[in-house]
């Protein structure tokens, strides 16, 4: 595909966002940005299977949860180091996604969607019942684990640096996938799966790889957050609302666009922060997200980026 300039502005902007709380040493700002970075990472990752390949993954948060539990358990029971744990969590999650993908991605998008809806429920019910993983109560760190990282305070900053790095890596990865031959294949599959197969694309393999990649980054994020929180339990790790938010963010920003996912995450977090302080609206979180999604799907299915590039064609090269 042709040369694009998206990363030229997106990367510096992200780096600036990450550095800002570090430079000002502002803990509250750090926490806010922490959540924004998580949203961006989740949104960008989901876009790989949703926007690039055209398969809606409901309940995608399950990979965040799997990565969180796996990494947490390694640190908790086997005292494995943070970075090794979270990366292993990422790989395990990706492997599970790949295998599941081989099973259900060969079918139409709608059937895949149904399968993913079941996934979250299924995993949650499983984990609620397995006692090694703490069951419904979850697991808690012995806080002495943080001593290995220079104490609790330093450990939290470490988590922050890792999250920032992860977000930036995920954006770069998503962008280069999109511009690669693999990405071209994915977009082709999205447009017409049967034609893609006839043209020589190994559709099943490509779809599974996309799905695995989309699971990898959320899983690592899960590990980071579990480490930071010091505890883990099913409803936090497999938070269905986050799954829903991921979809809304991707569609809001513009599915298929890396910049779109980042923008969508930012916009959504901003809207949320405004709404959550309004008295009645805050309990209507779910309903409002649903309404946003409905409006986007009915009237602006290509999201913010689609809207902008329709009226300002020159923006196409910077909003990929």
């Amino acid at each position: 595909m042709q040369k694009g300039y998206t990363l030229f502005w997106l990367l510096p902007a992200l780096i600036a966002l990450v550095i800002y709380p570090i430079v000002t040493n502002n803990v509250m700002l750090r926490e806010t940005v922490f959540l924004i970075l998580l949203s961006i990472t989740l949104s960008i990752s989901l876009n790989i299977i949703l926007g690039f390949t055209g398969y809606v993954s409901f309940g995608h948060i399950v990979y965040y949860g799997i990565g969180a539990y796996f990494a947490f358990y390694l640190m908790y029971a086997y005292k494995v180091s943070l970075i090794v744990s979270i990366v292993l969590g990422g790989l395990v999650s990706a492997a599970i996604a790949f295998v599941l993908g081989q099973a259900v991605l060969s079918l139409r998008g709608a059937i895949f969607a149904i399968a993913t809806i079941g996934v979250n429920e299924a995993v949650k019910s499983l984990i609620n019942n397995i006692s090694i993983l703490g069951g419904a109560m979850g697991l808690y760190f012995d806080f002495s684990i943080y001593d290995n990282y220079g104490g609790a305070l330093k450990a939290i900053w470490l988590s922050y640096y890792l999250m920032g790095t992860l977000t930036i890596l995920s954006v770069i990865a998503a962008y280069y996938i999109k511009k690669s031959k693999f990405g071209l294949g994915l977009f082709s599959i999205r447009e017409d799966q049967d034609a893609s197969a006839v043209l020589g694309i190994k559709t099943k393999l490509y779809k599974s790889l996309a799905y695995a990649t989309s699971a990898f980054f959320p899983a690592i994020a899960g590990g980071i957050f579990a480490f930071k929180a010091g505890n883990i339990e099913p409803s936090g790790a497999f938070n269905l609302v986050k799954s829903i938010e991921m979809i809304v963010m991707v569609m809001l920003g513009g599915y298929g666009s890396v910049a779109g996912s980042a923008l969508g995450a930012l916009f959504y977090e901003k809207i949320k922060s405004i709404l959550l302080v309004m008295p009645y609206v805050k309990d209507l979180h779910l309903a409002v997200s649903g309404l946003i999604l409905l409006i986007i799907v009915q009237f602006a299915p290509s999201g913010i980026v689609g809207f902008l590039t329709k009226y300002f064609k020159n923006l196409r090269k910077v909003l990929e």
Partner: peptide, 18 residues
């Protein structure tokens, strides 16, 4: 197909949210 999936999904969000 994606569109109709997301459409009915958004309906469910609104309903369950309310």
């Amino acid at each position: 197909e994606l569109t109709t999936l997301l459409s009915t999904y958004s309906l469910s969000l609104i309903l369950i949210g309310l």
